[in-house]
Design a protein around this nucleic acid. Structure first.
Lengths: 234, 234
DNA sequence: CGAGAACTTTGATCCAACGCAAACTTGACT
DNA sequence: AGTCAAGTTTGCGTTGGATCAAAGTTCTCG
């Protein structure tokens, strides 16, 4: 296994304000893994043996219902923790994590969590801040699902992805990993058919450009207005 | 202000395993407040000056959208913390808390949060466990809203309330505070009309008994089956 | 480069649930 | 005990999206 350099993680919010020696200590305990596209990092209901930090790539966190329906809980971007079941006092993962593209992750044995949080207070509190932030996002989503129409929900979902992982191109802001109509449907509680119709309609109005597993937001402001419920003229 | 006795809080999970002296220390810094029914404990967007522990009563936590729609995020039962914006690094409350009945709460200045978490590690970690648990519940709700029909969602909501605050009566398990059709609608993302129709239908089948601001679950098992998607015979 | 798999589009139909409207019931307050 | 407000029920028309069905595209890989 190759040696892990502290520069890999030094810039990340979670490790903010930690001494270089501490970073090295943390890295010493980590394994780094390469996860091929469509492979899972961890599996729902599986024994929570590890927790992870995404170094490179994009991962989608998916919950599957007993009857096989899937809901995408969130997308993980580089620098974010995932599989932190241990921090929540769970012994099993509440969702699966699937690589949306080839990924590189760091993994620590879950049993290390308590001592890491204790030895590196910044790491512990950073994790809790992450959990708190996710609670708020998730509650915002509950409000969306409970009060908004599909069109607004899909618009919000795209805007969130743009903010999280948008990459500027000459056409607009591209969502920086392959994402299908089905994926968007699973983020918003609708069907791929409805998403397809919405994207087509938006494309005709010049709000977005989209193709196979690819969405570019051309006019974020108008899409935002739409997300907030103001119907778009023309 | 009356003296607060440590027996008030000694049995609560959050304060588990804390020395009597610590409990006294914590209580010393608390004010106790009486909140009349329908009064707010704290208000969405308001400066997060305090965090709270519910001693007695029931509180509903409500988010209001810009266009005035309301969503009930959760009900708080005695022994639970609320308004812990500070623990999440917020300076403003993300929702309002309204007393569903006359309540008694303890309040601490929000500025005290960091030192309390530091001086009483059990209290700090207990809070984080609470936040983690709420994240999981909230994610479960997202899955519900995204995949289930209204009937299943309402059934799930009632079962959750029964579990949280159910009181046995000779008719069945009563939800132990006044709750209107409108409230149930705001918990499940539907309308009071639909809730009313569902309750009427369930009452005819003998699953529940309900009246003005009152719901009793007569046959939890059958309601559960319904919540899981198995249609109820007859 | 040709075939098949994966993804997307589009049309047609249907229905769960909403929105509106009006009546009814229950409790609270005077 | 009578009035009013708050909460609930119920009917009816409408509709946003789901579902079903089929064709069209774009990749991938042998």
């Amino acid at each position: 296994m190759s040696r892990l350099d502290r520069s890999l993680i030094a810039g990340m919010p979670i490790f903010q304000g930690m001494a270089p020696a501490d970073l090295d200590g943390i890295l010493q305990k980590a394994r780094s893994l390469r996860i091929a596209k469509d492979q899972t990092v961890f599996e729902q209901e599986g024994e929570a043996h590890s927790f992870f930090l995404l170094l490179d790539g994009h991962v989608r966190v998916v919950k599957t219902t007993p009857d096989g329906q899937q809901v995408i809980v969130r997308y993980i971007s580089p620098g974010e923790l995932m599989g932190i079941a241990h921090a929540l006092g769970r012994t099993t993962y509440p969702a699966s994590a699937v690589a949306a593209v080839d990924c590189v992750v760091l993994a620590w044995p879950g049993s290390l969590w308590p001592e890491m949080a204790a030895s590196f207070p910044n790491f512990g509190s950073g994790t809790y801040r992450t959990v708190g932030a996710r609670l708020q996002e998730t509650q915002a989503r509950v409000v969306e699902l409970a009060t908004e129409q599909v069109e607004q929900r899909v618009a919000h979902a795209l805007l969130r992805l743009v903010k999280q992982t948008g990459r500027k191109t000459e056409e607009g802001i591209l969502i920086d990993f392959p994402i299908s109509r089905q994926d968007i449907a699973e983020m918003t509680g609708t069907t791929l058919h409805t998403v397809s119709r919405l994207l087509t309609a938006w494309e005709e109005k010049g709000l977005v450009k989209s193709g196979r597993q690819k969405v570019t937001v051309v006019e974020p402001h108008r899409l935002f207005a739409l997300a907030e419920g103001q119907a778009d003229k023309d």
